[in-house]
């Protein structure tokens, strides 16, 4: 300890951050681990982990990953061209604002709106009816679940990609074209690799929350899609089997950490 005032004040400034991390990040994670070792009657046990490794929960895990993957893939598919287009428009900030705007509306409210839009007598089916396709069941299908989730998460995919594209030096694109690269090659070899960090950040921001979605599974998928998030909610609120709920949460934390490591490694590398 050097003991200079400058050092002291630095520690002082770290207090809010450190106590925040301790209270709201580290302590809850420790608590989750702690609870995961207790069964419903409060006995210390490893049963919850054994139970998680049974077909029921493994199938649930696989289906959660599958839906999260679908949601992320479709978000990316729509978000990348959108973000690209945004960088080329005149009133960028205005368009960006319009994309961010829906995130200010309460999530539940947006989901409820889809109950009306996708319903048998809803807007979409009325349209199908007039153009002669006839009424289709939209609500409570895999399609509507993925669609609504993509709608909700897409701003979080567009923003990081947009930022990455904005930072891209246009002279690099010009250079590629001057050197005879086709526009596809330019995209594949220059633009995409340089915006990969944005894509990764976007995928993290979408994939990780998608894994533990729960309200939408009931409202839009009618509990026909069961994710790990649904099971956590059930165990904490209905069954009051906090141990099992915590065990699922432990696996979610591990999965998320793995995803962060896999998709975030470039940041730790030599870049910049």
């Amino acid at each position: 300890m050097s003991g200079t005032t400058k050092n002291y004040s630095r520690y002082l400034y770290a207090i809010p951050y450190a106590s925040w991390m301790l209270l709201f990040v580290i302590a809850p994670i420790i608590l989750i681990f702690y609870y995961s070792f207790f069964d419903i009657e409060g006995h210390l046990t490893l049963d919850n982990y054994k139970r998680f490794l049974t077909p029921v929960y493994l199938r649930m895990t696989i289906s959660s990953f599958w839906y999260a993957f679908l949601i992320t893939a479709f978000s990316l598919l729509i978000a990348y061209p959108t973000a690209y287009l945004l960088t080329k428009t005149k009133h960028k900030q205005l368009w960006l604002l319009l994309i961010i705007l829906p995130t200010w509306v309460n999530l539940l409210l947006k989901v409820y709106a889809f109950l009306g839009i996708f319903g048998t007598y809803g807007l979409v089916n009325a349209f199908f009816e007039t153009i002669g396709i006839g009424t289709k069941q939209l609500l409570f299908t895999d399609f509507s679940f993925v669609f609504v989730s993509v709608y909700i998460f897409i701003p979080f995919m567009i923003l990081p990609i947009f930022n990455a594209l904005e930072k891209l030096n246009p002279s690099l694109v010009d250079a590629a074209q001057d050197l005879g690269a086709s526009s596809w090659t330019t995209f594949r070899r220059v633009i995409f690799p340089l915006t990969l960090d944005g894509v990764k950040a976007g995928c993290q921001a979408v994939f990780i929350p998608s894994l533990s979605l729960f309200m939408i599974t009931r409202l839009i998928a009618g509990n026909r899609v069961i994710t790990l998030g649904t099971a956590v909610e059930q165990h904490f609120l209905v069954t009051q089997d906090w141990g099992m709920g915590a065990t699922i949460a432990v696996f979610l934390i591990i999965a998320m950490a793995l995803i962060m490591i896999v998709t975030g490694n470039r940041k730790w590398g030599v870049k910049q």
């Binding site: 109950l115 319903g119 048998t120 007598y121 409570f140 009931r218 409202l219 009618g222 509990n223 026909r224």
Partner: peptide, 17 residues
Amino acid sequence: IKAIVGDEIKMLLANEE
């Protein structure tokens, strides 16, 4: 079974969903 839902069931049935 079409869906397993919460309180929304009232609205869905009234709307002939």
